[in-house]
Amino acid sequence: MRLVDLSSPVDARGWEPEPVTHEVITPAEGARHMAEEMREHFGIEFDPSVLDDGELLSIDTLRLTTHTGTHIDAPAHYGTRASYREGPPRTIDELPLEWFHRPAVVLDLTDAPPGAVGADRIHAELDRVGVELAPLDIVLLHTGADRWAGTEKYFTNFAGLDGPAVHLLLDLGVKVIGTDAFSLDAPFGDILQRYQRTGDRSVLWPAHFTGRDREFCQIERLANLDRLPRHGFTLSCFPVKIAGAGAGWTRAVAFIDDNEG
């Protein structure tokens, strides 16, 4: 069984619209911090110099959004209402685990220009793959956008889906749609320009807003989709269990059996 890491890193050195901060307490600083905490809270004296190299443990503190790095958007991310159920849409910790360890299919959109891809293109790519989707299969969109990760271009140059394309996949039983781009929707600038030109509200973030009426998730900011076969592998992408959150990070990994068949 071959494993392929499909996750982009959380890296404070890369460009982000919401910058990441990453502070590190070194093992030596950790030792001194522990000694101070033990003295202050428990009245216990401890000299950290008795530890090998005067070191205890390092501690990393990060400030970032749940949409940094490879992550899964929960239905709660799309809005506060859900027409498909009583009560509010589900948060990331409420979703069934069965959605996140499933057979997956890769659709090649690498030749699509920045903007929204329609249902006809998705249908053609499904025909090209030649596999009939089963309920809960995961569909991954290989746009090639991950080559710009860590730069401003990553947030402006990619292809997303329009509303009918999302509905097509959901009609086939898909619950999780993934992309190596910043968003499952088209770039913000493209969306707003089309809206200003047409006045058509249906162009405003349809890949997300469809989730107000149909329950599904999307994985954004994947990587290395070019290392995968078109089908015949399993994707594992369990989200981090953050209570009440609209999204959660995931370490997405493909399980490929090169000897299958």
Results as ranks from 00 to 15, higher is better:
residue 224 N to S: 12
residue 222 L to F: 07
residue 213 D to P: 00
residue 227 R to E: 10
residue 211 G to H: 09
residue 213 D to C: 00
residue 212 R to C: 08
residue 212 R to P: 00
residue 197 R to E: 13
residue 210 T to Q: 07
residue 221 R to W: 02
residue 194 R to Q: 15
residue 203 V to Q: 01
residue 208 H to P: 01
residue 225 L to C: 06
residue 224 N to D: 11
residue 232 G to T: 14
residue 224 N to I: 13
residue 195 Y to W: 15
residue 204 L to Q: 05
residue 217 C to H: 07
residue 237 C to F: 03
residue 220 E to Q: 15
residue 203 V to S: 07
residue 218 Q to V: 14
residue 203 V to N: 05
residue 233 F to V: 07
residue 211 G to Q: 08
residue 222 L to A: 02
residue 238 F to Q: 06
residue 221 R to F: 08
residue 198 T to E: 15
residue 196 Q to H: 10
residue 240 V to A: 12
residue 210 T to N: 03
residue 196 Q to S: 08
residue 193 Q to W: 12
residue 209 F to G: 00
residue 222 L to Q: 15
residue 198 T to V: 08
residue 223 A to N: 10
residue 202 S to A: 13
residue 213 D to W: 00
residue 235 L to H: 06
residue 200 D to E: 10
residue 226 D to E: 15
residue 192 L to R: 05
residue 230 R to S: 09
residue 234 T to I: 04
residue 225 L to V: 14
residue 219 I to K: 12
residue 195 Y to D: 04
residue 219 I to F: 10
residue 223 A to C: 05
residue 223 A to S: 15
residue 200 D to C: 03
residue 231 H to F: 13
residue 197 R to F: 14
residue 209 F to P: 05
residue 237 C to I: 01
residue 202 S to H: 09
residue 226 D to V: 10
residue 215 E to T: 11
residue 221 R to M: 12
residue 226 D to G: 15
residue 232 G to S: 11
residue 227 R to M: 14
residue 235 L to I: 07
residue 240 V to N: 04
residue 210 T to F: 00
residue 210 T to M: 04
residue 231 H to E: 14
residue 224 N to K: 05
residue 200 D to Y: 07
residue 237 C to V: 04
residue 208 H to Y: 07
residue 202 S to G: 02
residue 237 C to A: 15
residue 230 R to M: 05
residue 225 L to P: 09
residue 224 N to V: 11
residue 235 L to G: 05
residue 222 L to K: 15
residue 211 G to I: 12
residue 193 Q to G: 10
residue 215 E to I: 07
residue 219 I to D: 01
residue 193 Q to A: 13
residue 199 G to N: 05
residue 229 P to T: 10
residue 232 G to Y: 11
residue 212 R to Y: 01
residue 217 C to Y: 06
residue 209 F to E: 00
residue 211 G to E: 01
residue 217 C to F: 12
residue 196 Q to K: 06
